[in-house]
């Protein structure tokens, strides 16, 4: 039997120039035993509007959102196996880490962090793969 593919959380329909906010990207996709979460950027959970902040505050917004998304899908931060973090500057890595460490209990998931140019002036993007 072929493994199930299911859109758990569909695209965000907020008007925004950011490609990650368009309709061509699902937010949480289940494939077999795993959940794949798109690269999240900081948004206000109430309004869905973009939030501009510091690396620390954007990290906090994103991980709070990620926690909600995973729990709504029946998973949790404890079930995350791999995280990818993109930062606008690697000099900000300690500021991200300080917040990040508070969200994951020991042992935290595997993770890669890299510096890159990010769309629309965001400072942080975080994506993950978790067990469903």
């Amino acid at each position: 039997m072929s493994p199930r593919r299911e859109i758990i959380v569909p695209a965000v329909h907020a008007p925004d120039t950011a490609s990650s906010f368009g309709q061509a990207v699902s937010t949480v996709v289940r494939g077999g035993d795993f959940l794949f979460v798109r690269g999240l950027t900081a948004i206000d959970p109430q309004s869905g509007e973009r939030v501009r902040g510091t690396t620390a505050s954007e990290t906090r917004q994103i991980l709070t959102h990620l926690k909600q998304l995973l729990e709504a899908a029946g998973s949790s931060l404890e079930k995350v196996v791999k995280v990818n973090v993109w930062l606008h500057s690697m000099l900000e890595a300690p500021n991200m880490n300080e917040v990040y460490a508070r969200f994951f209990s020991d042992p935290p998931p595997a993770r890669t962090v890299c510096g890159a140019r990010l769309p629309d002036g965001v400072k942080v993007i975080i994506e993950c793969t978790a067990l469903a």
Partner: peptide, 20 residues
């Protein structure tokens, strides 16, 4: 994104895009 939509018109995958 404009071209990408042609390939994933419904139920698109999770995606992350950046530049390097």
């Amino acid at each position: 994104d404009r071209v990408y939509r042609e390939f994933f018109p419904v139920d698109p995958p999770a995606r992350t895009a950046w530049s390097m």
